[in-house]
Amino acid sequence: MKRRLRLGVVGCGEIARYTALLARFVPRLVLSACCDHNDEKAHRFARQFRIPLAFTEVEEMLETAGLDAVYLALPHHLHAGMIRRAVEAGKAVLVEKPLTRTLSEGVALVNWLAGQNAKVGVNYQYRYDAAAYRLAQAVRAGELGRVFSIRINVAWRRDESYFRSAAWHSRLDQAGGGTLITQASHFLDLALWALGEEAQEAAGWTATPRFDVEVETLAEAILQTEGGTLISLTSTMAAAVEEAVRIEVYGERGQAVYTDLPLPRLHVRGVRLGRHPLPVAGLHALQRSLRGFVNWVLDDQPYLIPAEGALVVLAAVEAVYRSAQSGRRELVEKIRIAR
């Protein structure tokens, strides 16, 4: 058994900085290398987080850095190709959400991965949030009874620097979308995972208040799952004042409300939920996600979001975007994976 997982970071932007900071508190994880096409950025990142090797070419890092795995914090349109390159080099992969920019790319990738001996996980880190995990497990265990409604509100605020520092965020061909795919997909993933169902039909609306960009900064959606649960979703990055994320789950026996600020909390009425402890310890969801990935690669303990598990939310997101364009309800594409 390997004692430590040697991880390389690809893409030295804002989210990678958070990940590198929390990686210091993950047992058996060592940041061995980093890579960015901008040489100054790569070396500054290496100095800041005491990473011994910095690269501007991914192939060189994969061939020479002695890595076990890579963490990808890249524009969405680069995910599919970079995952393939890392897997072909014999590395495990943890990629920032979404798995890929489009569902078709994701399905093709997962089908390709079926023929590889590789572990690829997607960092939908809220599955490792203690309160969110407890909510999801309670729903899966039927403790709220049949769930008939879930309401999700994501009122976040971004300023011009969000697009200025990473211009790909503003481009539809690179990001695939805006607040829905980049931010709200975290919580839609959580809802669908909790239900253990795929979305079946979607109605959606998008707009772009406050910014002159190609992607939406406001999205509204209603989705119906295979089991008949209605999920209503509002997400924005244009809020005047940022608010806590709120997920309300209404079941036949009781209801539960998750909020993430100032700390993640779960308020329950009508029933008493089980404890449902997380499979890994830690103080922060991202830290736990990293620890879960390490345990998966080194010890073969299941990671909560393998690549195939991230397709369900991607299919739902695409249906909402199609609905926003067509002005009518859209069926969610069924996911077909080769077995």
Rank of each mutant, 00 (worst) to 15 (best):
A130V: 10
A130G: 06
A155H: 13
T56V: 15
I152H: 03
A316E: 05
Q137D: 00
I51T: 09
G106A: 11
E197L: 11
V70Y: 04
A238T: 07
N38H: 13
K91L: 15
N123T: 10
Y126T: 14
Q287R: 12
A338F: 12
P27Y: 02
A256E: 00
H43C: 12
L218N: 09
E60Y: 03
F25E: 02
V87T: 07
V10S: 01
T229C: 15
T102G: 04
H267T: 15
S235I: 00
R44Q: 13
S170M: 04
Y133M: 07
A191H: 05
I150T: 10
P277F: 04
L67M: 08
T225C: 11
Q137W: 02
G13M: 00
V297M: 11
L113S: 09
P279R: 06
E308D: 14
A80G: 03
L172S: 12
A136V: 02
I150R: 10
I15S: 13
S289W: 01
V271N: 02
E248S: 12
R28L: 01
Q48N: 11
A65K: 08
Q255T: 11
P279H: 01
R164Y: 00
L7Q: 06
N123M: 12
A281P: 09
A285I: 02
V93A: 06
L72M: 08
L22W: 01
F148G: 15
A132W: 00
L99D: 11
A118H: 08
D129R: 09
G90R: 13
F25A: 07
L298P: 06
N111H: 05
E201R: 15
